[in-house]
Nucleic acid binder design. Structure first.
Lengths: 157, 157
DNA sequence: CTCATTTCTTAATGTACATTAATGGGATTG
DNA sequence: CAATCCCATTAATGTACATTAAGAAATGAG
């Protein structure tokens, strides 16, 4: 287990690399994201203080995600193989499955603005800390679409 | 742990109920799905033989998903609270996180036809067993869109 | 086998969001 | 302080997919 100090913008993991590490955020903010064929970024997860972030692929396959720092951060890095079964908290894993389940249902059934409202309710602190365009990327839409959706909503009131 | 024989079409769990059970499929095929405000179904997961299916919410909150049988099935039903930590295989949970991760990335970055091709590669057996409209529902599109996408693809060849 | 039901396909139209491009406002750095 | 960069917004146009409706094909029940 190694403690890392990472500067904003530093990339901890790249897609295609063998992914053997799990990162625990002590302070700051990390994110994981994919880049599609057209070069567009899609944020998979934000990881503020006390969150764990990693590529959920088996350790012997190349990973799908990039991980980098959105703020100067302090991170504990652990080798996946060093995590014994007793270390892994099944309850936390199940909780995360629940988060991903809700995310998938939202992506399939909710409009952009509904997903945005759900996000600011669920992660009010992150909204304050990152630019809107990154939230749009998490929601699966463009910053322009998010901007337009908020305007349309404001007009209705 | 109870063994259930469920007929095709039987609903094992409804949205809003307290969700205390985990189902293990011995034979047949189950699915979990949500129904949105407009009454439209969105399939979250197919569960053929040897799969485990459940709502990934904590056992004290009302569940998000319906679970029913797409074929006559035999299912082992277990109370979540009866699953001790030693029962839960962390490795399987992590593998499932990987599956959900890929699903989310696909939903955010791939077109309908790309998601379809990924699906038939990943679950070739399920394609044979369920109508196309259910696969469309899993992919997050309408049956009409899937039909059109396949036609467009065939024309290109 | 026959009828009824479900499923698949096609086509016309509608809509949410993407793309592109331009503009102005903060923030950041030399 | 000026120059630059990043970010948010707006508008025009484009596109993927939804919706609606109809008919054809497959499936299932009696």
């Amino acid at each position: 287990m190694i403690k890392l100090e990472v500067k904003k913008g530093h990339i901890l993991q790249r897609k295609g690399e063998v992914n053997t590490k799990v990162y625990q955020v002590e302070s700051g903010l990390l994110r994981s994201y994919s880049i599609d064929e057209k070069g567009k970024e899609h944020i998979y997860m934000f990881a503020p203080e006390n969150w764990i972030i990693a590529d959920n692929q088996s350790p012997d396959t190349p990973c799908e995600l990039f991980i980098d720092a959105l703020e100067d951060s302090v991170v504990l890095s652990t080798e996946k193989v060093d995590l014994t079964i007793t270390d892994v908290d099944s309850e936390k894993l199940i909780k995360r499955l629940g988060v991903l389940q809700n995310r998938i249902i939202m992506l399939m059934s909710a409009t952009a603005i509904q997903r945005y409202e759900h996000f600011i309710r669920t992660y009010p602190d992150i909204v304050q800390r990152v630019p809107q365009k990154l939230i749009a990327s998490y929601l699966g839409i463009t910053p322009e679409a998010l901007s337009a959706a908020k305007r349309a909503k404001a007009l209705k009131k």
